[in-house]
Amino acid sequence: MDKYNFVSESNKAFLRFHSDYSIAGAGFSATWQAVDVSGCPLQTLTAREGTLMSPNYPHFLMAHLDCATTILAPAGRRIWLQFLEFDFGAQRKNDRDLQLQEQARSEAVFEIDLSGGNGPFRPFQLPGHLTDGAYLSEGERLRVRLKTADKPRGIGFKAVYRTVVQVHEERLVDLSNVTVGTLLHLNYPKPPPPHVEFLQHFVAPVGHVILLELYHMTLTESRSCPGGTGIIEVTDNYADTNGTWWFLCEAATELGGRSESSTLAITSYFNTLYIKQKSGMSGVQLNATVKVYPG
Rank of each mutant, 00 (worst) to 15 (best):
T263M: 15
S279W: 01
T241Y: 06
T244Y: 04
I231G: 12
T241G: 05
N237M: 02
E250T: 14
S262M: 07
C225F: 03
K276I: 15
S262E: 14
E221K: 15
W246R: 14
L219H: 11
K276D: 01
I231A: 06
Q277S: 15
T263I: 15
W245K: 14
A239T: 08
E254C: 07
I231W: 11
T229C: 09
W245C: 07
G228P: 07
E250S: 13
S224I: 08
G228Q: 07
S224R: 08
G256F: 00
E260L: 12
R223Y: 08
I232Q: 06
V234F: 00
T263S: 09
A239V: 03
E260S: 15
V234H: 04
L248W: 14
T272G: 02
W245G: 06
T220I: 01
I275V: 15
Y269T: 03
S259G: 11
F270P: 03
I231N: 10
Q277Y: 10
S259V: 10
S224M: 04
C249T: 08
G228R: 06
L248D: 10
E221Q: 13
S268M: 03
P226M: 01
N242G: 11
T267L: 13
S224D: 07
S262V: 05
G228T: 03
L264G: 06
S262G: 10
L264W: 10
T253F: 07
E250G: 14
A251H: 07
S222E: 14
L248S: 15
E221F: 05
N242L: 03
D236K: 00
E221A: 08
L273M: 01
A252F: 00
G228H: 02
D240P: 05
T272M: 00
L264D: 14
Y274L: 11
A265K: 12
G243H: 02
T235M: 04
T253V: 15
T244S: 07
A251E: 13
T218M: 12
G227N: 12
T229N: 07
S224C: 07
G257L: 00
F270R: 11
I266T: 12
C249R: 01
T218D: 11
N242T: 05
S262Y: 11
L264R: 06
A251L: 06
L264N: 13
I232K: 05
N242E: 03
G256W: 01
L248R: 14
V234D: 09
C249N: 11
E254G: 15
T253E: 15
T253W: 09
K276H: 06
T272K: 00
E260Y: 04
N271C: 02
T229Y: 05
S222I: 05
T235V: 03
G230S: 06
S224K: 09
Q277F: 01
Y269W: 00
N237G: 06
C225R: 00
K276Q: 14
Y269A: 12
S279R: 08
R223N: 06
S262F: 13
D240K: 09
E250C: 05
E233Y: 11
